[in-house]
Design a protein around this nucleic acid. Structure first.
Lengths: 367, 367
DNA sequence: TCGCATATTGAATCGCCCG
DNA sequence: ACGGGCGATTCAATATGCG
């Protein structure tokens, strides 16, 4: 450690939450003093009216003041300002993570590149339990995006390749991470039982980020600390942390929360097992992947019934239409029927069960 | 179809590949004439050497910061130029898809928003078989990102919700799609056995995009056509297509490839329809047709509320009167309520949902 | 205390037609 | 162009309550 960095480290407000504007607070920290930054900035969601679930209950959306910006220009100016301040406090071999959704992540990614950061990966947090699209007007918004970037092109950075391989059952960790959203006992509540913060992130996400790209003893800075998930995980993993938060109430909650987190022995570092994608294969994938063509005819195993495949993976017979299971059941007059074992298709005059194709896809998925 | 759009359609070079600069070619197409655009623009930022400013002067590689800035600036200018041309040829209710990786997708997303497009979803293509990270210095780059955007905020767009739900085994399609990369027999090869195009996309990806956000007969434009995956899938799915490609060799390959693709029959192209598309049946018709008598009493599904049918198809309860929806909403204290699923009537002591009668009338109408 | 049914909730850019 | 009315729409994980 050089004298300069030693002095910088001594000046750091380690393991504390500072309340105030994160840009001013960062500018008050020594230059080049922080190993890793994790930032969960406002997403600028731009929600308009109210939204109700099909059961008429109201969705509690994010309508906080801190998420309202007048325009993209305003949001961009804010983003560039805090990224500039963040880059200054970062060590030359430091790195940054930023999380966002499609509302803001493209602005953030561009600003990162323009500020001189060098993107190392973009990572997709796939939610096991996202909120559905209640009106059926779009795809279920089932993921958020994280960007991992080094301080500059060619700079060194920390990446614990083997540790992440361990976390992923011995194979290279991919850029798509499947993790549940933060709920249950982990979700902080107010005394009246409401959620304490509208966008609390799961500790498992931070766990993976910190295990992947920091070392024990590293200083982790979070400029949008909220209720302190970054601090809680940093403490458990034996890292030092600094939290910046504008809202005194959130800061107070975070301090209390983190104080209750046990520092870990090396053992609990290995707890988060990766959840592998389940091998469910929708019949429609056989059509999408060209294993069956739209218009192709399926034949029942007993040879007595036929149905035609449609582009969306539904079947049509003379009398009925629906899924492979529904059409099979209707044709046989049964309450239910497993279409996978009922239908076959013809290749070179031979009848082949469609389940053969499903097994083919499953083999690809697990390969 | 208005005269203007009819003329525009007549002027379109349907089902052909045009060779040349995609911006010039798009500017030669009629305004507001295309239903959907799928774009797979070049990712290559050419960051190492060969940097050119927007005026095509070569950047002198002395200052790293200037290099980086100049290259992003060049890429941004190119992106904004082709997006502007693309937006002009799009119908007001049209939409665009763009695919990219972390090298370029943040530039593209920001440019889309700045050009007036309205992002509807970002979609993650998760690769079952990505290329591993050989050096173990980063995460396996296992996904690419697609952005789906409407022409402007508030504009309509096509989304075949039920078809995608069908493709996903009966649950809402999510924003993360697991599909293999294009290889094997689908991957076009040169005569010497090398891959014909470096970034050929899998047909399954285009299948899902087109089934989700276009209708049979729609015009699909691909300004970076390459070897024509968009055209091949469009033809199979009964869509019209226009391909723009700078490289004559790719265009030739694409033409040959697409000519060999069989068209699916019209019946197989129909996808599972949404209930919204079914003909509207005014409640009064049930009374007119004698399925319900004036004075007959309806009961809510929870059994707690009743209302009486009047001759004009309105309801009266003790407290309020109006349509089946209005009375249900008022009685439940809700902002709105679907009366069709709220009310039932009695026959032989049994409660029968009034929606049964609506389905009866619809069946008669389609017979 | 267990098992089952019901209720609640999560970073959400979530209608459309007709007069 | 705008306002009113019709009527379509949800998945996974907890929490609660009941027998």
């Amino acid at each position: 450690m050089t004298q300069k960095t030693a002095q910088a480290a001594a000046d750091l407000p380690l393991d504390t939450v500072l309340v105030g504007d994160c840009i001013e607070l960062m500018n008050g920290l020594p230059e080049g003093s922080v190993d890793l930054i994790f930032a969960d900035p406002p997403y600028n969601l731009q929600l308009k009216g109210e939204l109700h679930r099909p059961d008429n209950s109201r969705v509690d959306g994010v309508d906080n003041d801190w998420d309202r910006f007048a325009s993209f220009e305003t949001y961009d100016a804010f983003t560039r300002a805090w990224l500039t301040a963040a880059r200054r406090v970062l060590k030359p071999d430091g790195a940054i993570w930023v999380i966002g959704s499609y509302h803001n992540i493209f602005r953030v990614g561009s600003a990162l590149q323009d500020s001189g950061f060098w993107i190392l990966n973009d990572v997709v947090w796939r939610k096991t339990n996202p909120m559905p699209n209640f009106r059926g007007k779009r795809l279920t918004n089932a993921h958020e995006t994280l960007i991992w970037a080094g301080k500059s092109d060619g700079a060194k950075y920390t990446f614990n390749y083997e540790a992440l391989k361990q976390l992923n059952d011995g194979v290279q960790m991919r850029s798509d991470w499947l993790l549940p959203i933060c709920n249950g006992g982990e979700r902080l509540k107010t005394e009246s039982g409401e959620k304490a913060h509208p966008t609390q992130k799961p500790e498992a996400l931070l766990h993976r980020v910190l295990v992947a790209t920091s070392k024990p003893g590293d200083v982790i800075l979070d400029p949008f600390f909220g209720t302190g998930t970054t601090g809680a995980v940093a403490r458990r993993l034996g890292r030092r942390w600094i939290g910046l938060e504008r809202d005194e109430a959130y800061a107070t909650l975070a301090r209390k929360r983190i104080a209750g987190v046990p520092r870990a022995d090396a053992e609990s570092l290995k707890t988060t097992a990766s959840r592998r994608a389940e091998p469910r294969v929708p019949f429609g994938q056989l059509v999408e992947r060209g294993l069956l063509a739209p218009g192709e005819v399926l034949v029942s195993l007993n040879g007595r019934r036929t149905a035609k495949v449609r582009a969306d993976g539904s079947l049509v017979s003379a009398e009925t239409r629906g899924s492979i299971h529904q059409v099979a059941a209707a044709l046989e007059g049964l309450p239910s029927c497993n279409g996978w074992t009922y239908w076959s298709f013809k290749r070179d005059g031979q009848a082949i069960p469609i389940d053969v194709l499903r097994q083919q896809i499953r083999a690809e998925m697990s390969a």
